[in-house]
Design a binder for these strands. Structure first.
Lengths: 336, 336
DNA sequence: CTGTTAGCGCTTTCAT
DNA sequence: ATGAAAGCGCTAACAG
């Protein structure tokens, strides 16, 4: 391996001079700089970040901790985050938690040892608090994306859950639905809590009754959706929902699948809408009505805030960026 | 920051003893081990990987360099790669090349400086050779996924392009098509080359003429697909294709979009099929007929081979793993 | 403008 | 079973 010592020897200067050239120090004569740079070229020298980090205490590594990169919502967050990171000279470490706090915890331990400069995280839910405290204790800056955790402060970029829920409910009501079921994420997740709250508000606002049987709490990633949907549709004809609102794209798609298994026609027999677009390439074969959140922007803005925190250019108070979603009405709520 | 010196002092042992405890060295008395471990717990000590890497020459960092994480094909590769990496104690750095060799090159330079232990890469095409040589020169192991580059050897995991192409063409022929257009990727990419070769073979095999106007070479990511499709469909009625085969999901979806702009009905006026599924969650609203490659497995197996190379447990000769694809016939090729 | 010294946190090598 | 010394590749702090 070529080190600054090899360069120094060949150039008849001290290693420190080589270090200065690498770091574009101004106090280097043009002549020496040229000489050293030529030899760097010749020997194809690349600085060793490990050694540099040991002194500088920065690694130029950041991490994105999300539920599952396979979900187009998180995919786009990742793409936005990577773009911003690279642009600022940071590299992105990817971690999937699969909504499991334990997996998230193991990953955070790794990050702590790797000494990443910061973490952009969509926490699994309130139990993530312990994991985030670990970061805080070691003074590793982190920023929330999509969800936050009570009891620990950080910059936050998320969708406007209240407004988005209102829009979705309003759309369904406008289509004539008066019995709308909500298949929600776990109440330990801030976005699920906010969506539930907004949902009940929206019902009231539209003069609809709140029917407890139609409020389902489940998980964003793993559950027996067939059974959940079957139970909903087995309610007495007068109590059965005519529309289902799913709290994320994964639930939405699985609801669709469950209904297909039951041979129920969407949208004729039941309407379905959800948060987040399951389409990675939007608008190619639209079916599901969705409220699409600007995932790419969330990742990009979140990473931007994180880097500002890392580099100390962020304001002292924590920022909260709330991004609007876009209602995209498609076939799944358009009765023929 | 807590270091082994802090632990050592508090435990009345030498830093070396602490190091031995951390690394599970057998030559430590149970008593000392317990004492040290307790203090590690108490002070919440986490080993510094940077310092360790400086000596051990390994970072437990690997990188995945792909075209674009937003493409579900690559998303699934990433997920497979991350699962395997984490399982083996490695962390994954993500890099998007956007099919640009220059961007890929910049990223490789970063990786070289970060001293990753290995790289799993879907090279942009033959011009990537210089980038790969940089890795080889520094003895950074790499493995090809999806595509390879002539002139440099490495383990490889890819789809069976020949067989997949044959299946797709056979399906279209069976549906009665005799004029099939191929909208292919750039000939600098190995998969595009193999697909073109297999395509012309398949035509011959099925007794169809090879019509040069129906063989389009474009890019996997950026191009004016509207114009390409428009040109194809503007051919004389006798020369116009009745089916289009797209060389990846992105081209497939954009072809669909272009046809919609032109108010041409798929599949009634023209059939479309493509390589790779654009659906992240398969089978939720099937439309496009595709040959789905096992992307998750590609990522997983590729990472596995990479780790074996890194750890020296791989065989001396380079391995080539060719995975079969699955033809999924959907509406876009089923005339009503 | 350039060089010397010391040390980042850890492990290898040799002692004891 | 444990420790002392040296050094991985680099840079901060000082000196000249």
């Amino acid at each position: 391996m070529v080190t600054i010592y090899d360069i120094a020897k060949k150039a008849n200067v001290s290693p420190m001079t080589v270090s200065r050239v690498i770091n574009n120090s101004p106090s280097i004569s043009e002549k020496t700089r040229k000489k050293v740079e030529d030899i760097i070229q010749e020997l194809d020298y690349i600085p060793n970040k490990q050694a540099r980090s040991l002194i500088s205490k920065e690694t130029k590594l950041v991490s994105l901790v999300i539920s599952d990169i396979s979900n187009p919502f998180f995919t786009n967050i990742a793409r936005g985050a990577e773009d911003k990171a690279l642009q600022a000279g940071y590299q992105l470490l990817l971690g999937n938690s699969d909504e499991q706090t334990v997996k998230e915890s193991r990953y955070i331990d790794l990050l702590l040892s790797t000494k990443v400069d910061g973490v952009l995280i969509a926490p699994t839910g309130d139990p993530s608090l312990a994991n985030l405290r670990k970061l805080a204790k070691r003074r590793v800056p982190f920023v929330f994306v999509d969800r936050y955790v009570e009891g620990i402060a950080a910059d936050l970029v998320m969708g406007d859950n209240a407004e988005t829920t209102r829009k979705l409910v309003a759309h369904l009501v406008e289509k004539g639905h008066r019995k709308i079921a909500l298949i929600n994420g776990p109440s330990t997740a801030s976005n699920a809590r906010e969506r539930l709250l907004a949902f009940t508000d929206a019902l009231t606002l539209n003069g609809l009754d709140l029917i407890p049987e139609l409020l389902i709490e489940t998980h964003f990633l793993q559950d027996n959706f067939s059974e959940i949907v079957r139970t909903l549709m087995s309610l007495s004809p007068s109590g059965r929902p005519t529309a289902i609102l799913a709290a994320n794209n994964f639930i939405g798609v699985n609801t669709l699948r469950a209904l297909r298994e039951m041979n129920l026609q969407v949208p004729d027999e039941i309407a379905v809408a959800c948060f987040d677009d399951p389409e990675p390439i939007p608008d190619y074969n639209p079916f599901l009505t969705v409220a699409a959140q600007p995932a790419y922007d969330m990742g990009y803005i979140g990473m931007q805030m994180l880097i500002e925190r890392i580099e100390g250019t962020a304001p002292a108070t924590n920022r909260k960026v709330v991004l609007p979603s876009q209602l995209i009405v498609r076939k799944s709520t358009q009765r023929s």
